[in-house]
Amino acid sequence: MADGDKQAYVDDMVRRRGYVLPYHKAMAEVDLPVLKAADDLVSAAYLSQRTLDHRTKELLFVLSLTVLKAERHHIASHIRTALRIGVSPQEILEAIEIALPEAGVVAFQHGFDVWREVVGVTGVEPSAGVLPRP
């Protein structure tokens, strides 16, 4: 397969999805037909307009990837996509918080840490003198 075909396909993925993952790039290089087949499935379930709107699908992706403790860059890509299409940081956080009762604190913290980094939340530091002395 020509390198131009591979590049064109990756560029098209970015236009359609708004992102491309490291495995997409590598698969384009080594096995474009399988990447295309996998992408067709994602297009049918995720990219095609059906009953659920794009905002809802992104929130579901963020939640499901959080529960699965997916790689940080994968969760971050869906958080950034959600923000780009108008989902508020608070809405994304509330989706991640749904992981607490079903998947537990560890899964929640994983997704929360990614969310915190993407949206730039630093937190509230304890006041000076509050920490116990060694």
Rank of each mutant, 00 (worst) to 15 (best):
Leu131Ser: 12
Ser48Arg: 13
Glu97Gly: 09
Tyr23His: 14
Ala128Tyr: 02
Lys69Ile: 00
Pro33Val: 10
Ala45Ser: 10
Ala38Lys: 08
Pro126Arg: 10
Ala107Pro: 02
Asp3Ser: 11
Val119Gly: 09
Pro132Leu: 11
Val42His: 08
Met27Ala: 15
His110Asn: 09
Arg116Leu: 01
Gly18Leu: 04
Tyr46Ala: 09
Arg16Leu: 13
Ser48Asp: 13
Val34Ser: 08
Trp115Met: 03
Asp39Thr: 13
Val67Gly: 06
Tyr19Asn: 11
Ala103Phe: 05
Val10Trp: 01
Arg72Met: 00
Leu41Ala: 12
Arg50Gln: 14
Thr66Trp: 01
Ser127Gly: 14
Met27Val: 00
Met1Ile: 12
Val20Thr: 12
Ala8His: 07
Arg80Glu: 14
Val105Thr: 12
Val119His: 06
Lys25Ser: 12
Asp11His: 09
Leu35Thr: 03
Ala45Pro: 00
Val87Cys: 10
His110Asp: 05
Glu102Gly: 13
Lys69Glu: 15
Ala26Trp: 12
Arg15Met: 07
Glu29Gln: 15
Asp5Ser: 12
Gly123Phe: 06
Thr51Asn: 08
Val119Gln: 07
Arg50Tyr: 07
Ala70Gln: 06
Ser88Ile: 00
Leu100Cys: 05
Gly86Asp: 05
Val62Glu: 02
Val121Pro: 00
Ala28Asp: 04
Val62Gly: 02
Val106Leu: 12
Ile96Cys: 05
His73Leu: 05
Ala38Trp: 09
Pro132Ser: 11
Arg16Thr: 10
Val124Gln: 08
Tyr19Ile: 01
Arg17Gly: 07
Val30Phe: 14
Lys57Cys: 06
Ser43Glu: 13
Arg17Trp: 05
Val106Gln: 11
Asp3Met: 13
Asp113Gln: 14
Ile75Tyr: 04
Glu102Ser: 14
Gln90Ile: 07
Glu117Lys: 11
Val124Arg: 07
Ser64Trp: 01
Ala82Thr: 03
Asp31Gln: 08
Pro22Trp: 01
Ala38Tyr: 12
Pro132Phe: 07
Thr122Gly: 05
His110Ala: 02
Arg50Lys: 15
Phe108Val: 01
Lys69Gln: 15
Asp40Thr: 13
His73Phe: 06
Ala45Tyr: 12
Ala103Gly: 13
Ala37Val: 04
Glu125Cys: 01
Gly120Arg: 05
Ala103Asn: 06
Leu52Ala: 14
Arg116His: 03
Leu41Pro: 00
Ser43Trp: 11
Asp31Asn: 14
Ile85Lys: 05
Pro101Lys: 07
Glu102Asn: 11
Tyr23Thr: 12
Ile98Thr: 12
Arg84Tyr: 00
Lys57Arg: 15
Leu47Met: 11
Val67Lys: 11
His74Phe: 07
Arg55Gln: 13
Ile79Gly: 01
Ala8Glu: 13
Leu41Phe: 12
Lys6Glu: 04
Arg84Lys: 15
Val42Lys: 02
